[in-house]
């Protein structure tokens, strides 16, 4: 995937809310960037000293702007994530590379209406969706909840553009979103999209199912950040090598640091590109992805190396 990466320069870094920065990338060679679809993400590759950080971020739009891409990054306490680097060390003028956009959270354009629900930093792909729906003129509503008024990035911007289609809620105040009511009032043919913290996504999907919404009409951005864990060894059957996976890195990251180039796309356990066969494992596989079926997870013969780990000493992969 590195072969198709695009070198870009950080043209602007802007603090838009508590712990949230908006970054604008522009192409180094000045040639137009590819147009992208609402819900698409790009994988940003950053160098932090000797360490390479590759993180997926949703593209916010505006759609059709081929002179630059914009992302928003929430600073998290996750020590190995890229957010600290972005907040502390990524300045205007820095050079990074980005992948071609790809989309695992696309709009279903057959819908007669779209119900967009965002929590916190989950607003980023939803903003591109609102932009798209506004352009093609399909009815939509956007319900956006944030922790506090000041953490609500982009509320004013959205209200200015889309007026009464935007509904803002502060979870610390009493004005919480009445989901059950909202879900019961939508016309037949509505599709729902949710992006935000895992807990919120699970809540919204559960309530929608309980309100009788069919699975086919529910869409969620299921990016998972790789989480740390105990270290273990990965034995590579084909190349006859052993690579140590440390506490704060994923198998994919460890393999890349060792100079290997396994295929990947989303780095968030959603797309299936990095699916790898497990030949043996002396412990349990900790499946953190949203791609494999429950049955496949149970069988333990496959692993998504971008997010999943093992609890054990050693796993042998068909690589």
């Amino acid at each position: 995937m590195s072969g198709a990466d695009i070198p870009v320069r950080v043209a602007r870094v802007e603090t838009v809310a508590e712990r949230i920065k908006r970054i604008r990338f522009v192409p180094v060679d000045g040639r137009p960037l590819p147009t992208f679809s609402a819900g698409a993400h790009t994988v940003v590759t950053m160098r932090d000293g000797a360490k390479t950080i590759k993180n997926p971020y949703s593209l916010m739009g505006p759609l059709g702007d081929t002179t630059g891409y914009e992302i928003s990054v929430l600073r998290t306490n996750n020590s190995h994530g890229g957010s600290q680097f972005v907040h502390e060390k990524l300045f205007e003028g820095a050079f990074v590379t980005i992948s071609h956009p790809s989309n695992l959270f696309a709009l279903d354009l057959r819908a007669r209406k779209h119900l967009l629900i965002a929590g916190g930093i989950g607003i980023t792909p939803i903003m591109a969706m609102a932009d798209q729906l506004h352009q093609i003129g399909t009815p939509f509503e956007l319900h956006y909840s944030t922790r506090t008024p000041s953490s609500g990035a982009y509320v004013d911007e959205l209200k200015q553009r889309y007026g009464r289609k935007i509904h803002h809620y502060q979870t610390v105040s009493a004005r919480r979103i009445d989901l059950a009511n909202l879900l019961s009032q939508q016309p037949l043919g509505t599709h729902l999209y949710v992006c935000g913290p895992d807990v919120m996504i699970e809540d919204v999907l559960r309530l929608a199912r309980e309100a009788g919404w069919p699975e086919q009409h529910l869409h969620a951005e299921h990016f998972t950040s790789p989480r740390g864990g105990l270290p273990f060894d990965v034995e590579l059957a084909k190349s006859a090598r052993t690579v140590r996976v440390k506490e704060d890195e994923s198998i994919l990251q460890a393999l890349e640091s060792a100079g290997l180039e396994p295929p990947y796309l989303c780095r968030g356990g959603a797309c299936g590109q990095c699916e790898t066969a497990v030949l043996s494992c002396d412990g349990n596989i900790l499946h953190y992805d949203h791609y494999l079926t429950d049955e496949e997870k149970e069988q333990g013969r496959k692993i998504m190396i971008c997010v999943s780990r093992i609890k054990g000493q050693r796993v042998t992969l068909d690589l």
Partner: peptide, 10 residues
């Protein structure tokens, strides 16, 4: 019947 139906209709 369905023209006026809402989500939650099976």
């Amino acid at each position: 019947v369905l023209n006026v139906a809402r989500m939650g209709t099976r």
